[in-house]
């Protein structure tokens, strides 16, 4: 009896998280390892897998489409995430005040985040249509020139970024709003007594107080943005040509359209390291604060 209690005391530390660890091993570590094994094979799906060691890795590094994917992945992320942070912060600051109808507006502004991404993407694809879409109709009614939107190789990523901003700004706003509500109101009262302007209290009180939350939002959004798949695949499938083909989209097409299972697995290993690398780097900035 006593022994059992001792055992329990000693290992409870391990026992409670055990189910979670098992689930993690089964659902994440296992597939990642399997993916790594797959990446050492040349396997055209209707043929036989053939072990080729690290040849896929070599081929990936000399494939222009891989580098094109890396470029598009970073371009998309670097454009989308900072804008989401700025807009998200603005929305959060707005909702930190009282105004009539706040509850209703807050619900409406959260809608993009809870809607099904594929449905969102289909609607945006319609709106982007250069001949029949509503966006060009608006441009024309403002006497502005029509745009090709996602049909223009130079505009396709900025256009997709608009969708991503529209969809994910609410999440950033939600994280920052939670942090804002934790900032003691006394700070602002003291600042006001000292004669600080609204801008000064934002810059010297608000921002430093929620810096940790900003970094968290930055990390979460960066990881998501690097992996973005649904809106890009539904709206452009990586086109025109390969102008919006991110690493994730290229990996999907390699595996499920071109049936190159091993090559696709290799691309995903690279994507894993890209995402991990960025997450670790951003996390370092959090530690240093």
């Amino acid at each position: 009896m006593k022994r059992a209690a001792n055992f329990f005391d000693k290992y409870a530390y391990w026992l409670f998280p055990l189910p979670a660890i098992l689930a993690l091993l089964l659902l994440i570590v296992g597939p990642v390892l399997a993916n790594f094994v797959l990446s050492t094979y040349d396997w055209f799906i209707s043929g036989r897998p053939r072990f080729i060691g690290l040849e896929n890795y070599q081929n990936v590094l000399t494939d222009w489409r891989f580098w094109n994917g890396i470029k598009n992945t970073f371009y998309f992320t670097a454009l989308a995430v900072p804008l989401q942070l700025v807009f998200g912060l603005a929305v959060a600051v707005l909702f930190n005040r009282e105004f009539p109808g706040k509850g209703l507006v807050r619900t409406i502004i959260l809608l993009p985040m809870v809607a099904t991404p594929v449905a969102i993407a289909l609607i945006w694809a319609l709106m982007f249509n250069p001949s029949l879409g509503v966006l060009n109709y608006f441009l024309e009614s403002l006497s502005l020139p029509r745009s090709l939107w996602v049909a223009d190789a130079n505009l396709v990523i900025p256009s997709l970024v608009i969708v991503d901003i529209w969809e994910w700004t609410p999440m950033v706003a939600l994280i920052l709003l939670a942090a804002l509500q934790g900032v003691p109101i006394e700070y602002y009262e003291a600042a006001r007594i000292d004669g600080a302007s609204g801008w000064q209290s934002f810059w010297h009180i608000t921002l430093p107080s929620i810096r940790a939350a900003i970094v968290i939002a930055l990390i979460l959004r960066s990881i998501d943005a690097l992996k973005t798949f649904d809106i890009i695949y539904v709206i452009t499938q990586g086109g025109p040509g390969t102008a919006s083909e991110t690493l994730n989209v290229f990996a999907f097409r390699s595996g499920f359209e071109f049936f190159r299972a091993g090559y696709s697995a290799t691309l995903l290993i690279f994507l894993l390291f890209v995402v991990l690398g960025v997450a670790v780097l951003l996390n370092l900035t959090r530690r240093s604060t």
Binding site: N129, S131, L132, T236, P240
Partner: peptide, 21 residues
């Protein structure tokens, strides 16, 4: 041709014609 042909598959082409464009 219409603008944005590089993004046109059958849904875009047929709706363009169906809408008289």
């Amino acid at each position: 041709g219409p603008p944005g042909v590089t993004n046109m598959s059958w849904p875009e082409v047929t709706s363009l014609f169906a809408q008289g464009q």
